[in-house]
Design a protein around this nucleic acid. Structure first.
Lengths: 326, 326
DNA sequence: CTGTTAGCGCATTCAT
DNA sequence: ATGAATGCGCTAACAG
């Protein structure tokens, strides 16, 4: 791979002159300019980003840590982040933490080695003090995406509010009992339950929580549930993947949507509209979230002055389809 | 961020000694060793990968260019590639080409700037001579994944064979006419059509090709098709995303699977088994493909001797579910 | 406008 | 076993 020094030798000028031409900042003699450019083109010169960064201008690298890119929602996010970053001349170095704090820590270390200019992360455990310490140690601009954090910028949707919105909807279409698929530590659940309790003090007796991901077990639970509770059941799943799974199981059990079961998922992945009956789901503005995260980050990278942290809550929207129509 | 020179200053030894300690190659005085290690730990030292690469030991960076990571199949692939790479101390710098040759070219240029040690790519157009030239210019080990290529190592499944396998299956369950969803330039299609023609000279009259991705248009085409052709129709979609879309449309039209329509997708994404009726699909061994691609690449990076290119065709498997059961 | 000089952080000689 | 010197490719003064 050709270097500036080599181009300098070939064209008979000094290396800094080559640098000037190729970076186009200061003015150089037009003839020299052309000669150098021609030579650079001929040899497909590309500046060595490593050397450049070493000298202090940053790496133009953004470290991205996702919990799991095989989740469509995150895959979309990464795609939009890359687009936004590319527009500003940044590239992404991507890691999956697999929801594992140890791996996450390792990702952070590797990113440090590459001296990424900034960091976008979906934290495994945003409140973990160790995580906060690790981020602080990194000492570079960082924004968390998808999760609300207090010690760093964050771009997210208010999961509790979204959960509440789902509660409102399910109550509105007249459900007699409820199923939540996920863990009760989830903000979505908390917002959902809170809202329900507001209008129905007996809510907790009407609720069943399914934590397992095992299709067989879910099937048994559903079967028993619908045998004992004939009334319309509102089902809220913490993500579309689970919701699609439930959708299939309900179909197999011959439980009709939305009459017997009103199902709502989360993330509004493309499958929702293709399914039959169509799957209601909470849509996150992932393109906007990605763009916002990248913008905030790059702004902080390039203007290190303003170093306060901001909360960037964004608006989610419930997309109602056949699976939970009135 | 602390440097070796700084650690050297703090511990009163020379920078090369720090380097020796931290890289653990040559032997150093145990006392010095401990002192240096302690200091490094205390300050959370991480070697500057940029500087290290500059001095000639490579970047430990693998450039990955995918056409579209929002496709679950590729997202899975990337996840497994990252795992495999991490195990060998490499990190991934990821790009999406969006099926756009220009963007792909740009990705290649950026990778060059970062002096990635090697490259794994899903080519937009593997036969394009310009693409081949660009890869050659890069002058680093490169493997193409998912596509067969002649000028570089490749890890892929034989799409034509997989298409033939689907043909066999659909013929076997007794279809009277066929629908292919995708483009006829696709190897899957070619294998499919070839196989069909073997046993049925009239195949071409029995085939309809749907190229559009527009749900409304697909719906019209299907409606017209089933009105005119009452017999059982074998439908082969080039990927699961399209297959899921068709699945929904068929359901909405009240066309039963597998009686009236036997549907087969491609990639065997998780949705397939959750759908009802379950979606038949061709399963690619993506974990193995990813691991193989990474292994081959790293081997070539670390043993530049053997520079021949190898074909690595892998075995796909048709997973039959309700959507195309006999 | 352009060449000289210096230095980024590190690995790698070469001495000692 | 360890320090001194060198150079990777580049940018950033500085002097002409």
């Amino acid at each position: 791979m050709i270097t500036m020094t080599e181009i300098a030798r070939l064209t008979g000028v000094s290396q800094p002159t080559v640098s000037r031409v190729l970076n186009g900042n200061t003015s150089v003699n037009p003839e020299v300019r052309e000669k150098v450019l021609a030579c650079a083109r001929e040899h497909h010169f590309q500046p060595n980003a490593m050397a450049r960064s070493l000298v202090g201008s940053g790496t133009k690298l953004i470290g991205v840590v996702l919990t799991d890119i095989s989740n469509s929602f995150f895959a979309d996010l990464e795609k939009y982040m890359e687009q936004a970053a590319r527009e500003k001349g940044y590239s992404l170095i991507l890691f999956n933490s697999d929801y594992d704090r140890e791996k996450e820590k390792h990702c952070l270390e590797v990113m440090r080695r590459y001296r990424v200019d900034g960091l976008i992360i979906v934290p495994v455990l945003e409140q973990d003090p160790k995580f906060r310490a690790e981020i602080k140690e990194l000492d570079i601009p960082a924004v968390s995406i998808t999760r609300q954090t207090e010690h760093m910028d964050c771009v997210y949707i208010d999961h509790a509010a979204a959960g509440a919105r789902v509660a409102e909807h399910l109550r509105h279409i007249g459900c007699e009992n409820y199923l939540f698929v996920g863990t009760t530590g989830d903000r979505k659940y908390q917002g959902f339950a809170e809202k329900m309790k507001e209008s129905d003090p007996d809510f907790e007796q009407k609720l069943t929580v399914i934590e397992t991901k095992d299709s067989g077990k879910i099937r048994s639970i559903l079967q028993a549930h619908f045998r004992e509770h004939p009334g319309k059941c509102g089902i809220f799943a913490y993500n579309d993947r689970r919701a699609v799974q439930l959708h299939g199981i309900l179909q197999r059990l011959g439980i009709s949507m939305p009459d017997q079961a009103a199902l709502v998922g989360f993330d509004n992945t493309y499958t929702c509209e293709y399914l039959y009956p169509g799957l209601s789901s909470v849509s996150q503005p992932n393109r906007e979230m990605a763009a916002r995260a990248v913008d905030i980050l790059i702004q902080k990278i390039e203007q290190p002055a303003n170093q306060e942290c901001f909360d960037n809550p964004m608006q989610a929207e419930l997309v109602i389809r056949e699976s939970s129509e009135r």
